[in-house]
Computed example of a mutant assay.
Amino acid sequence: MILSTKGRYGLKAVFELALNYGLGPVSLKKISDKYDISESYLEQLFAKLRKDGYIETVRGPQGGYMLAKKPQEITVGMILRALEGEMTTSQCISKDVCSRESICATRVIFEKIENSINNVIDNITLADMYEEQKNIFTEE
């Protein structure tokens, strides 16, 4: 399973909003320049995230985007699913019943992999990402 640019870029952009949480809105230009992502692509990603209630827009000359919730209330899984859809390791896992389930040796493995991925992304918040980054830079 490989994340598309939607998930990778969207998570970076939302993380930038988390870094600026409580400091006011962040412009698309600032995010675009920092991460080298086109503003129009960011607009598309943010439209989905705004629709799902993770970010909000502030209009006007000092406007931009901000998190709609606290960084500790938004998980990586929430952002990735909003942009990518459900995370799955195999098409057979997403089906309720598979005709080969009784003889399939790999289904159990794919389920374990998927459960592990979901466990990780659902238990890391934007606040956790901030703390991890802070620790990396203080260790150097």
Results as ranks from 00 to 15, higher is better:
residue 9 Y to V: 03
residue 12 K to A: 10
residue 95 K to M: 15
residue 54 Y to Q: 00
residue 30 K to C: 06
residue 80 L to K: 10
residue 71 P to V: 00
residue 47 A to H: 14
residue 123 N to D: 01
residue 27 S to M: 00
residue 85 G to Y: 03
residue 27 S to W: 10
residue 25 P to H: 11
residue 111 E to V: 10
residue 99 S to D: 09
residue 31 I to W: 14
residue 123 N to P: 02
residue 116 S to Q: 09
residue 49 L to S: 02
residue 16 E to H: 09
residue 100 R to Q: 07
residue 124 I to K: 00
residue 76 V to I: 09
residue 22 G to W: 03
residue 5 T to A: 11
residue 4 S to F: 02
residue 18 A to F: 02
residue 27 S to T: 14
residue 106 T to S: 14
residue 73 E to W: 06
residue 18 A to N: 02
residue 29 K to S: 15
residue 16 E to G: 05
residue 9 Y to P: 03
residue 35 Y to T: 05
residue 20 N to Y: 03
residue 17 L to S: 01
residue 104 C to A: 00
residue 2 I to R: 14
residue 119 N to H: 12
residue 33 D to T: 10
residue 130 Y to F: 10
residue 100 R to Y: 12
residue 16 E to L: 11
residue 117 I to F: 05
residue 24 G to E: 04
residue 107 R to S: 14
residue 70 K to M: 11
residue 1 M to L: 11
residue 38 S to Y: 13
residue 42 L to Y: 11
residue 64 G to S: 01
residue 134 K to F: 06
residue 84 E to N: 03
residue 36 D to P: 00
residue 49 L to W: 06
residue 41 Y to W: 13
residue 35 Y to C: 03
residue 49 L to Q: 02
residue 69 K to V: 06
residue 44 Q to T: 11
residue 74 I to K: 02
residue 52 D to N: 13
residue 95 K to A: 10
residue 8 R to V: 15
residue 121 I to A: 00
residue 104 C to L: 06
residue 29 K to W: 10
residue 66 M to S: 10
residue 96 D to I: 02
residue 86 E to P: 07
residue 115 N to Y: 03
residue 106 T to Q: 06
residue 68 A to M: 07
residue 24 G to V: 03
residue 24 G to K: 06
residue 104 C to E: 07
residue 113 I to V: 15
residue 104 C to W: 04
residue 89 T to S: 00
residue 83 L to K: 11
residue 20 N to M: 10
residue 54 Y to M: 14
residue 50 R to D: 13
residue 28 L to H: 10
residue 24 G to D: 08
residue 10 G to E: 00
residue 112 K to T: 08
residue 22 G to N: 05
residue 1 M to A: 13
residue 83 L to Q: 06
residue 28 L to Y: 05
residue 39 E to I: 12
residue 53 G to F: 03
residue 133 Q to T: 08
residue 37 I to N: 00
residue 99 S to W: 15
residue 53 G to M: 05
residue 103 I to K: 11
residue 130 Y to W: 08
residue 75 T to H: 02
residue 57 T to P: 05
